[in-house]
């Protein structure tokens, strides 16, 4: 892969400590986010995608820690910083937060302090990172609130979060995350807690802003439909590991990993109306986090399971098209055979 990345996650491993025992919940994750592109991280709940997103800003909670790998970020002075090496409570990471990497959270209801006004909480970010006086900050805040589609921002700025609806709060959250023009915006399931109609509006807003400000976007979701609308690249996560990764069109049209295929089959299609096709759920459920299998994590639920192979080692990465990589023994095997054929 080329070097024109904005953020590059290399071999990231994150562990959870429970009663003196340590469990890795994210293992060997590699991601490359290019400037101005939307990168989507997809997975079921508990797959570790939120953990990965929090680790980029070093916001992991108690008992969760990065135990290996690198998170390389190219800051506005074009210097490369390894975020893993920073102190999670130190000045350097604080200078990156919101100023260069902004973040939106899943629950718009609880991501604002209920006893401070919206304006207070957004202006705070301005004062932290931009050199503006109070009046200018307020003006900028009102502009931003207007930009994210809040009606009557002059009034809204002095309102409290509980006076806002969920959609309005998420808009305010977007305003708070983007007020300093970050180069990367991390959005952790920004629409999950919202109504479907509001979801569409928020997605459109994010897409528009992303185009306008030419910002990269790490978009976390479990919703393939949403991904199809918004993303350029996508990585599928399962039990803390990436199983398939590539340009979104490639993956949607030509999924290779059985898990990805399963996910796509589980989505209803308009075209299926009247055709009496049943939705196919993926058999079984996500295994206990503490009982990580040795081989491919999906082996226990996989319909194409190969005994003594899939339950032994985690498959190597196989590049089946430009930038499209899969971690599956089947794909590996097929690829090897093809190569053999070519060689002969």
């Amino acid at each position: 892969m080329s070097d024109d990345y904005l953020l590059k996650v290399e071999d990231l491993t994150i562990s959870l400590d429970v009663d003196n025992a340590s469990f890795s919940i994210v293992e060997g994750v590699n991601l490359t986010i290019k400037a101005g592109r939307v990168f989507a991280l997809v997975g079921e709940s508990g797959s570790g995608k939120t953990i990965v997103s929090l680790s980029i800003l070093r916001l992991l909670g108690k008992g969760v820690s990065i135990t290996g790998g690198k998170i390389l970020f190219k800051d506005d002075q074009a210097q490369t910083i390894d975020i893993v090496k920073l102190n999670s409570k130190g000045k350097p990471i604080q200078a990156i937060r919101a100023a260069q990497i902004g973040m939106i959270f899943q629950e718009p209801m609880s991501s604002f302090s209920p006893v401070h006004t919206i304006g207070n909480q957004i202006e705070e970010v301005i004062h932290l990172h931009l050199d503006l006086d109070k009046k200018q900050a307020r003006q900028k805040c009102i502009e931003m609130l207007g930009k994210v589609g809040i009606v009557n921002p002059e009034r809204a700025i002095d309102q409290y979060p509980f006076e806002f609806s969920g959609g309005m709060r998420q808009r305010a959250m977007i305003a708070r995350a983007m007020i300093c023009n970050p180069k990367l915006l991390i959005a952790d399931e920004p629409t999950t807690a919202l109504d479907v109609t509001i979801q569409a509006q928020i997605l459109k807003l994010m897409k528009d802003l992303q185009n306008e400000l030419n910002m990269a976007n790490l978009f976390i979701s479990h919703n393939i439909g949403v991904i199809a609308q918004i993303a350029d690249d996508v990585a599928i996560m399962y039990m803390g590991k990436i199983v398939e990764q590539g340009p979104v069109r490639d993956i949607l049209r030509n999924p290779r990993h059985p898990y990805t295929k399963g996910l796509l089959r589980a989505i209803p299609h308009l075209a299926d109306i009247g055709r009496s096709r049943r939705l196919e759920p993926i058999a079984g459920s996500v295994p206990n986090l503490y009982e990580r299998p040795n081989g491919c994590p999906f082996a226990a639920r996989c319909s194409e399971f190969i005994e003594n192979i899939c339950d032994r080692d985690f498959p190597k990465s196989t590049e089946i098209a430009t930038d499209h990589t899969v971690f599956c023994h089947h794909v590996e095997r097929d690829q090897n055979q093809q190569n053999l054929v070519v060689n002969i």
């Binding site: 929090l54 800003l57 916001l59 909670g61 409570k89 000045k91 604080q94 200078a95 990156i96 937060r97 919101a98 100023a99 902004g102 973040m103 959270f105 899943q106 629950e107 609880s110 991501s111 604002f112 302090s113 209920p114 006893v115 401070h116 909480q121 705070e124 970010v125 932290l128 990172h129 959250m173 708070r176 995350a177």
Partner: peptide, 25 residues
């Protein structure tokens, strides 16, 4: 709570963040 993580994500120093948000609540 979530708002603490969200406030941390703005780059506020840990001490100020704790005094302004969770302590206040």
């Amino acid at each position: 709570k979530m708002y603490v993580t969200a406030a941390r994500a703005t780059g506020l120093s840990e001490f100020k963040m704790i005094l302004k948000y969770p302590v206040r609540l």
